[in-house]
Structures are given as C-alpha cells and as structure tokens.
C-alpha cells in the first residue's frame, strides 16, 4: 500500500482542533485502560482526508507538526501497515523513531507503547497509538490484559471518525448476513447464546462470533445496543 502520499495530508489535520468530540472519547479510553496517552490517525480514501485526534497537550502537538514528524514517525507510517499491533520495542532501532521520541522525552512523553493498525473495507486505514510510563515488564502485563478490548475500541473509533464523512456514512450502511440477522432476531426474542446454538444446531461460540460481527457492523458496544439498532433499521422485529 502506498503510504507516503497519504501522509502528506497530516500537516493540516494535526493543527489542534477546537471542540474535538473524538478527544473526549480518547480521554475516556486513556482513563479506562490506565494509559498515558491515546492518539488516533486515519485516512479516508473516499474524501481524501486524513484525521488525527490525540490526548497530547497542544505544546507537543504543535512541536510535532512544526518538526514534520507526521511524515517520518514510524508509529504512524510503518506500524499502520502491520496486521498485528506493533509494540514500539520493535521500532527502537529505527532512526526516525529515535528522532521523534528524543524530542517527545523533553515533553514528558514515553517511548513505551504500541500501535494498533485498523483496516476498513473501503481501503480506509488507521492506527491507534497508546503509550505508558510503566516499566517494560509491567507494560507487557497491562498490554496482554487490555489488547483484545483495545482492538475492538480502536476499530470503533476508526469507524466513527470515518463516518463523520457523509459519503462514507452512506457506504457504510451495515451489511448483515442472513445468519447474523437470524441470531439477532432470536436475541431480540430473549434467547441466550446457548439456546440459539441449540435452535440453529451450531456451537455457542459460533453464535458469539456472529454477534460480535453484528455489533461491529452496527457500531454497537453491547449486544443490547446492537439489537436496538437492528430494530431501528428494520432488520429485526422487536421481540
């Protein structure tokens, strides 16, 4: 995937925004997961825009923009091309990493962290970077504990940011499979995952993986929320 052309947009978006609704979301994540900072950067290929939202203070954000770090920062540019989350220890031999985090250190920002890459169906992509001031062993423990939740939240933030674009929102109408609708319909009727598995002669984990996919498609954090949205969209009848 070409990266350099995408990243040229970053200089505009990293100018601190006023009244950033996404910043609140990132601040909540920071608190919930016990992190130092949370930063999201994403590219929308349909509108050709790049979006950045961070919990860093304006001083660092301005310095970062002024130095043009968005063009070289490997926690953005390289890590985003990975499939698995990239722990920054993997980047420590990268000279650009050293350059960015030498300055970051002066702003009290640590180089212990990871970037979770996110890919969307339309060629949209993003990265959620988180960092921490814990020691390496403590950081590894925390990471293992929160990584599954962070994966889901990262995808959620990405979808929300992407769909602030009307065309992207229109394209992203949830495409649920027959099986997903069927399982949501039984859930709306009050059946448990185990019941639904028995009814459909599939394992309860198969039911669970379909529900998880439905939640993702409907941008719901909980199954109850997903059922509500599916009803609102006319995909499912109220139980």
């Amino acid at each position: 995937m070409a990266n350099t052309d995408l990243m040229d947009h970053f200089d505009l978006s990293f100018v601190p925004e006023r009244e950033d609704p996404f910043k609140d979301l990132l601040l909540k994540m920071r608190e919930k997961f016990g992190l130092d900072h949370v930063a999201y950067a994403g590219f929308n290929p349909i509108s050709g825009t790049t979006h950045g939202h961070v919990t860093y203070d304006d001083e660092w954000t301005r310095h970062y923009a002024k130095k043009g770090f968005f063009k070289v920062d490997p926690t953005l540019n390289e890590a985003r091309r990975s499939v698995a989350p990239v722990d920054w220890s993997r980047l420590e031999h990268n000279k650009n990493f050293t350059a960015v985090f030498r300055d970051a250190h002066d702003f009290g920002i640590t180089d212990t962290g990871m970037t979770i890459p996110i890919r969307g169906p339309f060629g949209d992509m993003g990265g959620l970077s988180v960092n921490s001031r814990l020691s390496q062993p403590e950081w590894r423990k925390l990471k293992q504990h929160i990584i599954t939740d962070l994966q889901q939240v990262a995808a959620n933030v990405h979808d929300l940011v992407m769909q602030s674009n009307p065309l992207m929102r229109a394209l992203s109408a949830p495409h649920l499979s027959t099986r997903e609708v069927e399982i949501l319909q039984w859930t709306a009727a009050g059946k448990s995952q185990q019941d639904i598995g028995d009814i459909l002669s599939i394992s309860h984990r198969t039911v669970e993986v379909h529900l998880r996919s439905s939640r993702k498609k409907l941008q719901a954090l909980t199954t109850v929320q997903a059922v509500g949205r599916a009803i609102a969209l006319g995909l499912v009848y109220p139980g």
Partner: peptide
Amino acid sequence: LNGEPPLRSATLW
C-alpha cells in the same frame, strides 16, 4: 458465503 456479506470483527482474523 453464498454471496452473503462476511463476518467483520477486529478480533477475528
């Protein structure tokens, strides 16, 4: 998938 949309999840590879 019989032309049906695929499963989508951040925790499913």
